[in-house]
């Protein structure tokens, strides 16, 4: 470039450049890689009707669980053994010896059916609850993944990229239901510094994002013999869930939980009772491992409280400018009085 740039031109251009960058960031123009590709008009929701699900009483394993395993088998982790501990800790998370478990969420089992006895209205009821990722509308895991490898598809499915996941398990910590499960000994970290950093890969339901892309239904829905799982356009599903709840005088789980999810459970038994039953069962079995999510009603979204802080970051510069204006005015008017006095001296008095 032969053009000479004067100091003034340089300053001007850099001001324009930083202002443009600021506007781009503030208006969320996709000038950078975006992981949230969800399109409000294309969201796919699901309705799980607990009055219909019997946990496939006639089968050893519920059919939705079998279908999910078969469909995703080629993606299951194949860890390199022996698996090393997460230095400096003396532990690692390994499910490779329990691949056949279908009674909880593991890296090898992305959906399961929790069966509990619930006392309600003077009778004991058997309730079977298919569990998997709820696919939140405002998903903390997707927003907070430090490596940016959790994507939201246009249908709203929350999907972990197993090729780039480092296995820090932050997604599980920030998920109210601890859904993603970790397998050590696989993934990108094995190629970097496996002894010092990384923990494996996180696995969970991705709503069969590839099938949705082809316009097909997720595996769990197509194999359910009772029609208890139904996927469809989110608003229609939501409407249907409320209609069904009204019809049976029942309850809904997933519409307000964690600021709303794409999965809506409908039941004729209140969800706090179901939650109690799950917690009691886990306590009785002395089960403290991850993979059997609770059903606490109205569980809060941790991102909700940060929205106020984001507002504070918008007000802060205005407050800063105002405070500076007042101080400058005070200093300058003090200076005038003294006629030619030094501003710094004025400030000290």
């Amino acid at each position: 470039m032969s053009e000479k740039i004067s100091r003034r031109t340089f300053l001007k251009r850099s001001t324009v450049a930083s202002a443009t960058a600021g506007i781009l960031l503030a208006t969320k123009t996709p000038g950078y890689a975006q992981t949230d590709k969800s399109d409000e008009s294309m969201l796919i929701g699901s309705l799980i009707d607990l009055t219909k699900c019997d946990g496939c009483a006639a089968y050893d394993t519920p059919l939705c669980v079998t279908a999910c395993r078969q469909k995703n088998e080629h993606r299951f982790p194949q860890p390199q053994k022996p698996i090393k501990d997460y230095w400096p800790r003396k532990k690692h998370e390994d499910w490779s010896n329990e691949k056949d478990r279908t009674d909880r969420l593991t890296p090898y089992n992305w959906t399961y059916v929790e069966k509990v006895q619930v006392n309600w209205n003077g009778e004991t009821k058997e309730v079977a609850i298919p569990r998997r990722c709820m696919h939140c509308l405002d998903a903390p895991c997707q927003k907070l993944c430090p490596f940016g490898v959790i994507e939201k598809t246009k249908h709203g499915a929350v999907k972990i990229d197993e090729n780039f996941c480092m296995g820090g398990a932050k997604c599980r910590t920030v998920c109210p239901w601890d859904i993603p499960q970790r397998q050590a000994g696989v993934g990108l970290y094995m190629k970097l510094a496996p002894e010092l950093a990384g923990g494996g890969v996180m696995y969970k339901c991705d709503m069969c994002a590839d099938l949705l892309e082809e316009g097909k239904s997720p595996a769990c829905e197509t194999t359910c013999p009772k029609g208890a799982i139904e996927f469809g356009p989110y608003e229609q599903i939501r409407k249907k869930a409320y209609e069904r709840a009204k019809e049976i005088g029942g309850f809904i789980y997933g519409d307000v939980e964690n600021s709303g999810t794409l999965t809506l459970y409908v039941s004729d038994v209140p969800f706090d009772k179901i939650n109690e039953a799950i917690e009691t069962k886990k306590q009785e079995e002395n089960d403290t491992r991850f993979g059997r999510p609770h059903m606490k009603p109205e569980v809060e979204n941790m991102l909700e409280t940060t929205h106020g802080y984001m507002l504070a970051t918008l007000i802060a510069p205005i407050a800063g400018a105002a405070a500076a204006g007042i101080t400058a005015y005070k200093v300058l008017s003090g200076q005038k009085k003294k006629e030619g006095g030094d501003a710094h001296e004025q400030e000290e008095k």
């Binding site: 802080y309 800063g320 500076a324």
Partner: peptide, 11 residues
């Protein structure tokens, strides 16, 4: 983040 924005604009 808010305090840093406050101090820099003040400056």
């Amino acid at each position: 983040a808010a305090t840093l924005l406050f101090f820099t604009t003040y400056h």
